[in-house]
Lab assay of single mutants.
Amino acid sequence: QIFVKTLTGKTITLEVEPSDTIENVKAKIQDKEGIPPDQQRLIFAGKQLEDGRTLSDYNIQKESTLHLVL
Rank of each mutant, 00 (worst) to 15 (best):
V16H: 05
T54K: 11
P36G: 06
E23V: 07
D57C: 04
Y58G: 01
L7N: 15
G52N: 12
L42E: 00
V69P: 01
F44Q: 03
L70S: 11
D57M: 06
L7G: 14
T54W: 04
Q30W: 12
I35Q: 03
I35M: 05
T65A: 04
R53H: 12
P37R: 14
K32G: 04
S19N: 12
L70G: 11
P37C: 10
Q1V: 13
E63L: 11
H67P: 01
D31W: 11
E50K: 07
I29K: 00
L68G: 01
E17H: 14
L55R: 00
S64Y: 10
K26D: 00
E15H: 13
E23G: 13
D31M: 15
K10M: 11
T21M: 07
L49C: 05
V4L: 05
T54F: 07
K32F: 08
N24G: 09
A27L: 15
F44W: 10
P37Y: 12
T21Q: 04
L55K: 00
Q48T: 13
I2H: 01
Q48I: 14
A27Y: 15
R53P: 05
K5V: 15
D38A: 11
I43A: 06
K10S: 07
T11S: 07
A27S: 12
D57V: 04
L42R: 00
L55F: 03
T54H: 06
H67W: 09
I35F: 12
I29S: 01
L42S: 00
L14S: 00
L66V: 10
I29M: 03
E50V: 07
G52F: 12
A45D: 15
E33K: 04
I12R: 01
A45Y: 08
S56Y: 08
I60Y: 02
Q48G: 06
S64R: 03
E23P: 03
D20G: 03
P18M: 14
Q1A: 09
T11Y: 09
Q1F: 14
I35R: 03
Q1H: 15
I12P: 00
A45S: 09
S19H: 12
D51I: 05
Q48L: 11
L49R: 00
T21K: 08
Q39V: 12
R41C: 15
T13W: 07
Q40M: 15
K28H: 05
E17M: 14
T13E: 08
A27M: 12
D20P: 01
D38I: 09
S64F: 09
I12W: 06
Q61H: 12
R53K: 14
V16I: 10
R41Q: 14
T6R: 06
E15S: 14
Q1I: 15
F3A: 04
Q30D: 05
D57Y: 14
T54I: 06
E15D: 13
I22Q: 02
H67N: 08
E33C: 12
I35N: 03
G34Y: 04
I35A: 04
I29N: 00
P18W: 15
K26M: 06
I60L: 04
E23H: 10
V16P: 01
Q30T: 11
T8N: 13
Q40P: 01
Q1K: 12
I35V: 08
P37K: 15
K32I: 11
T21Y: 08
G52A: 11
V69D: 07
P36L: 07
F3Q: 05
T8E: 14
D38M: 09
Q39L: 11
G34I: 02
K32H: 10
H67E: 13
T8F: 11
T11H: 06
Y58H: 04
L42Y: 03
T65Q: 06
K28E: 03
E17R: 07
Q61P: 14
V4W: 01
R41D: 08
N24I: 15
S56D: 10
E23R: 13
T13V: 11
P37H: 12
Q61R: 11
I2E: 00
L68S: 02
H67M: 15
G52V: 07
D31C: 12
I60N: 01
Q61Y: 09
N59F: 07
Y58K: 01
F3H: 09
I2L: 08
L42V: 04
E23Q: 13
L49P: 01
G46W: 05
E33V: 15
E15M: 14
T13Q: 08
N59W: 04
Q48F: 14
K26W: 03
P18H: 08
I60A: 02
Q61M: 12
G46S: 05
R53V: 07
E33T: 13
Q1C: 13
L55G: 00
K47T: 12
T8L: 10
N24P: 00
K10W: 10
D20W: 09
I12S: 02
P37F: 14
G52I: 07
E15Y: 13
E63N: 14
R41T: 15
I29D: 00
V16M: 08
T65F: 07
D31P: 02
T6Y: 13
T11A: 05
V25G: 00
K47D: 07
Q48D: 12
I29E: 00
Q39W: 09
E50P: 03
A27F: 14
S64V: 07
T65E: 07
D38G: 11
L70R: 08
G9R: 02
Q30E: 10
G9D: 05
T65W: 08
Q1P: 08
K47Y: 09
G46P: 01
L68D: 00
Y58T: 02
T13G: 05
D57P: 00
K47V: 13
Q30A: 13
E63H: 15
K28D: 02
K62A: 13
R41M: 15
K62L: 10
D57N: 06
K28M: 12
N59R: 07
L70H: 11
I12T: 03
K47A: 10
D57W: 11
I60W: 02
G9Y: 04
Q30S: 12
L7S: 15
F44K: 03
E17D: 13
L68E: 01
A45N: 11
T54N: 05
K47G: 06
P37S: 12
R41S: 13
T8A: 13
L55W: 03
D57S: 12
L7R: 10
